[in-house]
Amino acid sequence: MTPETIYGATGIALFAIGLYHALVLPSALRRIVALNVASVGAGFVMVIAAWRPGGGADPVPHALVITGIVVLVAATAVALALVRALHDADTTETDDTP
């Protein structure tokens, strides 16, 4: 079993775990975490393409994965902000209605 296969299988497995939980979990926070796990899995698949037998690593996949992480961080930040705002709004609503 080559390292490439191991990494690839791990990536797919991570993606599948993340995807499954993103679909079934009820809590928004958990779904956000699950989406992050899935995204790491997708990044795994991409980054193993940098492996060149006998040479240095290909820089392009690294650039792609870093960009992907930036996108994911941004989206996660917005999602967390929304969860927080929603939590505040719900609290206010319950406070207003005795």
């Binding site: 690839g8 990536g11 993606f15 899935a38 995204s39 899995g41 997708a42 990044g43 795994f44 698949v45 991409m46 193993i48 393409a49 996949p61 792609l64 992907g68």
Partner: peptide, 9 residues
């Protein structure tokens, strides 16, 4: 992203 990863791979 997963699809892109597989294609690039």
């Amino acid at each position: 992203l997963l699809g892109i990863g597989l294609l690039f791979h």
